[in-house]
Amino acid sequence: MSSADTPSIVRMSGVWASYKKKTTTLQNIDMEIKVGDSHAIVGPSGAGKSTLLKLINGTMMPSRGTILVDNHRPDQRDSVFRSKMARIGYIPQSLGLVRNSTVLDNVMMGALSRLGGLQSLLKRYPDSEVDAGHKVLEQVGLSDKVDRNVYTLSGGERRRVAIARAFMQRPKILLADEMISELDTTTSRIMMNMVRDEQKRTELTVIMIHHDIELATEFANTISLIKGGQKVLELGNSKNTITNFSIGESVQSGNA
């Protein structure tokens, strides 16, 4: 966990964002996330949580304000940032899996940036990468479905394929948009522990959108509550811990 002098990896100040002119989806967001943090974003449906993640990985540009991710302005059209995107693990809410490809092929997509151009186009993956793919699939419990086409999988299995793909990116930052929805409690915990173990081994920073407040408080050291496009509350930092009670109550009132 971070301390006061840990460098920050995501910094937002006065960020506004909108999909269409005249409507704003996010307003005046300030946020600072430090290297190795586990940050949870909670809030009612339509609040702008997923939009926040898109701003961080540069697939969407803010209309106002500044964002720095790993000391760079996130923008997918910028070649310097593009090379960083390969190491920003992303589990979109809609998963973004290729349905007509196998589980393994989907997972290997996370490794493509490490391969040579021709290698990746011919699907000539080095043995070490294929082994890594199998290993991460074993971790998410899909060893027996490696060669299945994604369209034949259940909802929860698909979600785990997306988790495995993100791990395959060897991420420095993990952006996870409700990655454990559709999973049972036991599997959810296995997935969350997998993320936590990775954080212990590396300097992985995790930014995770949560539906389940209990899990959010259990696994995160900082939490933002987003409501109506605004950050209405931030809880926890390196010094204090979060209590279930306070965050639960905040979200309750946020939903009302």
């Binding site: 979109p92 973004g96 290729v98 186009l121």
Partner: peptide, 20 residues
């Protein structure tokens, strides 16, 4: 959806064509 995801994890245009 898969095209956006592929591009968000830093895949190149050619990789996107080949793999998505």
């Amino acid at each position: 959806d898969p095209m956006d995801a592929a591009s968000a994890i830093g895949m190149s245009k050619l990789q996107l064509i080949r793999h998505v």
